[in-house]
């Protein structure tokens, strides 16, 4: 499905640019986007190193294990295929906490770390395990209690009450998260091999 969507976006974009007499734009966009990919990766390099360094400290001090123990009753229910003492729980919980606090920059490193741990327990290394899909579903729909960036945008646009959308945001993301958990549960049952 990703292959198809990727191809459709690419081909339809080029065809429509051609029809609009705007074909030069394709060249510019492609090269700009490739450059941007490196920029994003380099930015991420610094942030990832910082958070993974700090997480290694927290792990050695036993902090991650304590946090995982506190959150595990809920999180373990969502990942029935993982062993209760799986090392993936630590980064999964850290990732969700960072998402909830709206710390997008910190969430990605923990998320990638969690994927690596999940991959270590995956018996079919080229195919997504059910636990990975559950994690992605939670990750892309996670509740955010402080949508900091958009509050900033609203402030600059002269809103009389920039934070008034926090309540509606929490409601909408709670619905999305519930849908993700239900859909994941449904497809997991249906796709069991």
């Amino acid at each position: 499905m990703v292959n198809l969507i990727w191809l459709i976006m690419l081909i339809s974009g080029i065809v429509i640019a051609g029809l609009n007499g705007n074909i030069d734009q394709v060249t510019v966009s492609a090269l700009k986007a490739a450059e941007l990919g490196i920029e994003v990766a380099i930015q991420l390099m610094g942030i990832m190193s910082l958070w993974l360094g700090l997480m290694n400290l927290a792990e050695k001090a036993g902090l991650i294990q304590s946090l995982a123990r506190i959150c595990s009753p809920v999180v373990r229910k969502l990942f029935p295929s993982l062993r209760p003492d799986s090392p993936a729980f630590g980064p999964i919980i850290m990732n969700l906490c960072a998402n909830i606090l709206g710390l997008g920059n910190a969430a990605t490193p923990f998320g990638l770390k969690a994927m690596q741990e999940l991959q270590n327990e995956n018996s079919t290394p080229d195919t997504a395990s059910p636990a990975m899909i559950t994690f992605l579903a939670l990750n892309t729909s996670c509740i955010t209690i402080i949508p900091a960036t958009i509050i900033g945008v609203r402030m600059k646009a002269g809103s009389s009450n920039p934070t008034e959308i926090i309540g509606t945001t929490i409601f909408a993301t709670a619905c999305a998260m519930a849908a993700a958990i239900l859909a994941d549960f449904f497809f997991r049952k249906r796709n069991r091999v």
Binding site: Q116, Q119, L136, T140, A172, A180, A183, D184, R188, N191
Partner: peptide
């Protein structure tokens, strides 16, 4: 991509369903 998974199975469906619900 970071861990070399090629077959995504139903992951995209779940994600997009959550987006539509949102």
């Amino acid at each position: 991509g970071a861990v070399g998974i090629k077959k995504h199975r139903y992951a995209l469906k779940v994600g997009l369903l959550a987006d539509v619900t949102g």
